[in-house]
Design a protein around this nucleic acid. Structure first.
Length: 702
RNA sequence: GCGUUCAUAGCUCAGUUGGAUAGAGCAACAGCCUUCUAAGCUGUGGGUCGCAGGUUCGAAUCCUGCUGGACGCACCA
């Protein structure tokens, strides 16, 4: 809490104590302080109707007056921090000392450097964030992007707030669909294996599409796929440990490890390693792959490995990373144990041959296992949650999954509620009981809306890479335009200077300066050098990625977004590139202002603002905006909502751009420039921090 | 049919958890580059907060009903 608010808190406590003889906590008192909607109402306000709960009775206006009369005599005590107190209707409004406030905020940011806003809770939470989770065998489409960036951003936000975030990618690598994929591979003889190695995901997707089409006409496809999946699941389940045994083992590992406790060799990673080697894909090996359970298992593992490699490449290109890759298959091994435990304890029952759980508050029965005995993803999710509890001992687990799966998660969460209630009915499984009973209440479904109307220009699924490339091209186009204008202006300047050359020294100086500048930019249609081209490519790529990612994070998660190419490819207004541009603008300005760094270092100790300066009101507004960063972070975490930060950043950027437009700093006196230098640098610090938290690339220059 | 969820300016969205005069950005129109990056800034127009009730000092926000859309609802994930 800042010194201004602290003062108010103590005053509010005092007035309640004095008038009603009630002691309230600092937190309670702080909650009574609101931010007025307009500067003309001051900087903090106390709405009298909130005091009704402490026994203040009567018309709100009268209460406000009562409070005001209490404050006024002791105003001298506040004078150092506040300019005035005003009564307006039902509100008592407080006006801070603007000079002090602005200096306070800017100094706060300057002192904490890049860490401004970083949290350090007394008890950091261990939070698992399960996101992205693409389905293997399908290419990484734009649909996956939303989960990916929301999850990644939340992880960063939690980390920045001092919590411990564990990022898990839970791959959809199991289920009947893989039976289909294997069926496709085995049925179609015309697969080009060299093509396969080049772009495996594309080939797999081709198989996927083809088999789904054939399935419509040929009923044997589905049957074969089901059988092959059963073979796969049976093969995995043979000779395995029991879930109980597994949980016991995890437990002993966990006790020795603090912090993140990432088990790198687990699950997918380890399995995919043994998939290579003797399992070369070729025509001759086809009998092995299609004819034996072991071959089929290897084939599936190979599909999975190839897909994961591809995903990793894509993640890397947009700056996404995970602490662990897990797969559903890993849990499939234990889904039969779950089924038995739940049935034996009476939590689950058999209905129409399938295993179901009836969950409180959810009408639809939760299906745990199919009548042919194979597992469903709900049972695998139960296994996964329990395993993770054993492994990580999490305080909270967030599933970043689309809202169309809301029912699934309410069933999953409901099952853990039921498990907790009926835990004593479970026999013989102490480890399972131990972990399963404490999960209830720690699971959160962070859902998000669909992206509607997203299709390629020809009308199909959009691949993420094509999407980004489209944005990049647009960014490059824009960049080229700007360079052209720059070049044109330059040659105009040079012509101008040449004219002046006849008029004396002034012209000579101008000409030499311009020749220097010109060497940086190619004039006219000359070929650019390779490094210039590379620079242009990288810049436009970052802008493109920024535009695409920010587009997914700027609106509240839950609303469906109407996709519109023109909106995404417009880089003006409330967009990622606008923020990137703002940062690079500040960069450029600060660079020009910081010619004398030594002076600035000295000034950092003792700068201050004067309200007699023409730009002071705007400086104060910027300081206020910066100050709101901590509140924004807080509500972003509370709501698991990155868009809070997006809106905040847009506001801040807009404040800066207005200031930039209205006041010039170059050429002003050093003591005028110094405090503003730190103010602008504070804006930049916060903007860059938010861009980082939102996974939007930051550019030095644009 | 049942359930979840949404409806705010022509379009895309905010709206400090029930508070002061409902705000931005696009698009339209009118301006601003000899002066720190015009991916910027300024101004104008644009609203029955889906409709109807209710709750109270006070409702875009809460409750009920209606209309309209999206999603989900037994062996897919």
């Amino acid at each position: 809490m800042d010194i201004f608010k602290k003062k108010l808190v103590s005053f509010i406590k005092a007035v309640i104590k004095e008038k009603k003889n009630i002691d309230i906590s600092d937190e309670e008192s702080e909650k009574l302080i609101k931010n007025p909607p307009d500067v003309s109402f001051g900087d903090y306000s106390l709405a009298s109707y909130y005091l009704a709960r402490y026994g203040f009775k009567g018309k709100p206006e009268d209460i406000a007056e009562e409070i005001f009369n209490f404050f006024e005599p002791s105003f001298a005590d506040m004078e150092e921090l506040f300019d005035k107190i005003e009564i307006k209707g039902a509100y008592v409004n407080f006006f801070v000392n603007k000079e002090k406030f602005a200096s306070f905020v800017v100094r706060d940011v300057t002192d904490s450097g890049g860490d401004y806003g970083r949290g350090a809770p007394q008890k950091p939470l261990k939070v698992i964030i399960d996101f992205s989770s693409p389905n293997i065998a399908k290419p990484f489409g734009v649909g996956h992007l939303r989960s990916t960036v929301i999850g990644m951003s939340l992880s960063k936000i939690y980390e920045f707030c001092g919590h411990n975030a564990i990022k898990i990618n839970y791959l959809g690598d199991f289920g009947t669909q893989f039976g289909k994929l294997i069926t496709a591979f085995c049925r179609y003889g015309d697969i080009d294996f060299s093509e396969f190695e080049k772009d495996p995901v594309k080939i797999l997707y081709g198989l996927y599409v083809r088999i789904h089409k054939d399935e419509q006409a040929d009923a044997t496809v589905e049957e074969e796929a089901k059988n092959r999946f059963k073979t796969l699941e049976d093969f995995i389940s043979v000779n395995k440990r029991s879930f109980e045994e597994y949980l016991g083992g995890v437990n002993s590992v966990v006790n020795n490890i603090n912090g993140k406790n990432i088990e790198n060799g687990s699950g997918v990673e380890a399995d995919s390693a043994c998939a290579s080697g003797n399992t070369k894909l070729s025509g001759e090996n086809k009998n092995f792959f299609c004819g034996t359970p072991e071959g089929q298992y290897n084939l599936w593992k190979l599909f999975r490995k190839l897909s994961i490699d591809e995903f990793k490449r894509i993640y890397e290109s947009i700056g996404i990373e995970f602490d662990a890759y897990e797969g559903e298959a890993y849990s499939a091994e234990f889904s039969k144990d779950i089924k038995e435990i739940l049935l034996k304890s009476g939590i689950a029952e058999i209905s129409e041959g399938a295993v179901i759980v009836n969950v409180k508050g959810v009408k639809a029965p939760a299906l745990i296992a199919k009548s042919d005995g194979t597992s469903l993803y709900l049972s695998r999710d139960i296994v996964t949650a329990v395993s993770r509890m054993a492994k990580y001992n999490f305080d909270k687990m967030i599933y970043v999954v689309g809202s169309e799966q809301a029912l699934h998660f309410s069933q999953l969460f409901g099952i853990f509620g039921k498990l907790k209630e009926n835990i004593q009915k479970i026999e013989d499984n102490p480890n399972f009981k131990n972990y399963a009973s404490i999960i209830d209440g720690r699971l959160v479904h962070v859902k998000f809306g669909r992206i509607i109307g997203m299709s390629t220009r020809k009308g199909n699924l959009v691949f993420l890479e094509d999407y980004i490339e489209e944005a990049r091209l647009k960014a490059q186009e824009k960049l080229e335009e700007r360079l052209k204008i720059l070049e044109d202006n330059l040659s105009a300047e040079i012509n101008d200077a040449a004219k002046k050359l006849n008029e004396g020294m002034e012209g000579i100086r101008a000409t030499t300066e311009n020749v220097e500048k010109q060497s940086l930019i190619h004039e006219g249609k000359n070929e650019r050098t390779e490094s210039e081209n590379k620079q242009i490519y990288l810049t436009s790529l970052k802008v493109g990625i920024g535009a695409v990612i920010f587009n997914d994070l700027k609106t509240r998660r839950t609303t469906d977004v109407n996709f519109n190419w023109d909106n995404v490819l417009s880089f003006e207004g409330q967009t990622g590139p606008y923020l990137q541009y703002t940062v690079s603008r500040i960069n450029s300005l600060l660079k020009r202002l910081s010619a004398n760094e030594k002076d600035l270092k000295n000034a950092a100790q003792s700068f201050s603002f004067s309200k007699s300066d023409a730009d002071f009101d705007d400086i104060f507004l910027i300081a206020k905006q910066i100050y709101g960063f901590k509140t924004a972070l807080h509500s972003a975490v509370e709501q698991n909502e990155p868009s809070v930060l997006s809106s905040f950043a847009l506001d801040l950027a807009s404040h800066f751009n207005k200031y930039y437009q209205n006041y010039r700093l170059i050429g002003k006196a050093q003591e005028y420039v110094e405090p503003r230098f730190f103010m602008l640098s504070s804006v930049r610090t916060v903007l860059i921090r938010i861009l980082n938290l939102l996974c939007v690339p930051v550019l030095e220059r644009m």
